[in-house]
Design a binder for these strands. Sequence first.
DNA 1: CTAAATATGTAATAAAGCTTCATATTGAAC
DNA 2: GTTCAATATGAAGCTTTATTACATATTTAG
Lengths: 291, 291
Amino acid sequence: MANDTNVLTQIQAALPGLSKSDTKIAHVVLADPEAATHASIALLAQQANVSEPSVNRFCKRLGATGYPDFKIWLARSLVAGVRYISQVVDPEDTVTTYPGKLVDNTVNALLLAREQLPLKTLEVAVEHLDAAGRIYFFGMGTSAAVAQDAEHKFFRFQTPVTTHTDPLMLRMLAAGGSQGDVFVFISHTGRTEAIVDAAALASASGATVISLTAQDSPLAQVSHCVIGLEAPENTEDYLPMTSRIVHLVIIDILVTGVTLKRGEPCIEHLARIKESLLPTRLPLNRKRTKT
Amino acid sequence: MANDTNVLTQIQAALPGLSKSDTKIAHVVLADPEAATHASIALLAQQANVSEPSVNRFCKRLGATGYPDFKIWLARSLVAGVRYISQVVDPEDTVTTYPGKLVDNTVNALLLAREQLPLKTLEVAVEHLDAAGRIYFFGMGTSAAVAQDAEHKFFRFQTPVTTHTDPLMLRMLAAGGSQGDVFVFISHTGRTEAIVDAAALASASGATVISLTAQDSPLAQVSHCVIGLEAPENTEDYLPMTSRIVHLVIIDILVTGVTLKRGEPCIEHLARIKESLLPTRLPLNRKRTKT
DNA sequence: CTAAATATGTAATAAAGCTTCATATTGAAC
DNA sequence: GTTCAATATGAAGCTTTATTACATATTTAG
């Protein structure tokens, strides 16, 4: 079976074009995938009111070599209790249910992102960042925190780096960009006007423009290097976004990429920085005296 | 089989006390768990140079009902190619390997956190935050970005909320705290002196102190409500931390908790806020004219 | 309405996994 | 060291499970 796609998603996608028996089987599996992984072919056939060979054929049609193989793939779609299909938090949820759902959704977003990591683009971005004389991060709203995190990480390299959220500051800096400057714009939608305007300005100024945003968005169109991920949109208004988590991991990837590129000296430098923080720390479990 | 623990971890933990045959089987499974999920009991027995019943007994000893059941549990430990065991990025890694590793590690951290979510504590924290007259978030270094994210999310409620990183500001605000104030301290280690001092001050002032930090850390000891998660430490200096991601998801949980608690009017309020952002957005795929 | 194609079920076959029992190995007491 | 008990391992037969081959039913196109 193709190992790049999730079985549950695959079944759901195939559902419309399925035959009568296959539809019945699909429904039983989707209704309780967990149970299906433990059922024998006979039991599943019975639950779906079809014959055993029908179940077998169903599995093969999905790309598995047979029923046991299908069960293995199915099991892999159920991560330690995590449903691979996005779960919506609703008003009926209690403290025992919604925290798990939120974690699940985040994990799902990451797994989805993992499958479509634009490695080539990441490599190019790392090259630009490594060669940069100066790095600017921009993000507004939720992405402001991501930009701040990025600054905090890149600050550890010797390259000057700053973060901004003020649109005017942003325009001025972008307009004054020059070769060797790298502007990184972070925007989930890629449609925040101030960000898109600034990116266009920066691009025109001769600087390199990297963006973490939605593929084919207006921001993507004015960027030299687009790290575009199709994060599942959260339709519910009151559901926090998972995309910023994905963006943060992308930042991790970029930081790691630059670190690996620079090699040993860079790692030593990072170790020194880490050491510099030690005096700000209390020993573990020390009882405090002063208040 | 106990569904709360990962099979690979479980095998690794049991390894020392295993018999000769069981050790051989364990090694074969750990060497390539992926392959093991597809192997028949006969093949696995052959690869480990043991008999088939030995494999069967091995599975049962681990809590499975038999070999097929074991394979299912094993498959669930391998999330869409993600190894459930933390992977260290090393200098030999290339762009084709390290991004996946970083995502995997993040996913693993989240799955680990999911298993040990302190639901009761989260519920209490949500109650405090819901009832708060004023909310303060504090975080330094990497946690500053988490605090900022938290502010951005909680800002959407009607409760006044601020974030600070300045230690002096922090002390002053903490000392001046009063009943109804909720201070949320975010610190991976729980040993940043400035944060611990401030938390102690805030606690003494009559305010409620919630902390997102390591269990049993100095910070935890001076907090009323400790959301403590044992995030796997990243030993490598140049590896970005996964704990901040877990903290962000905890923030999501708290935000969602408060939202659910407040019910319909709150959701309406959030929808209004979301609407207010629309004019800042460009339509999708619009070609830009001005630069 | 008929014929080909497709889908489904029945029954036989093959494969995989499990149990029982015999043998070997280990460990503790003497 | 030797003996005995406890535990571990393997061989063979047995049971369960899955697959294949074939027959029957259903659909679809002409």
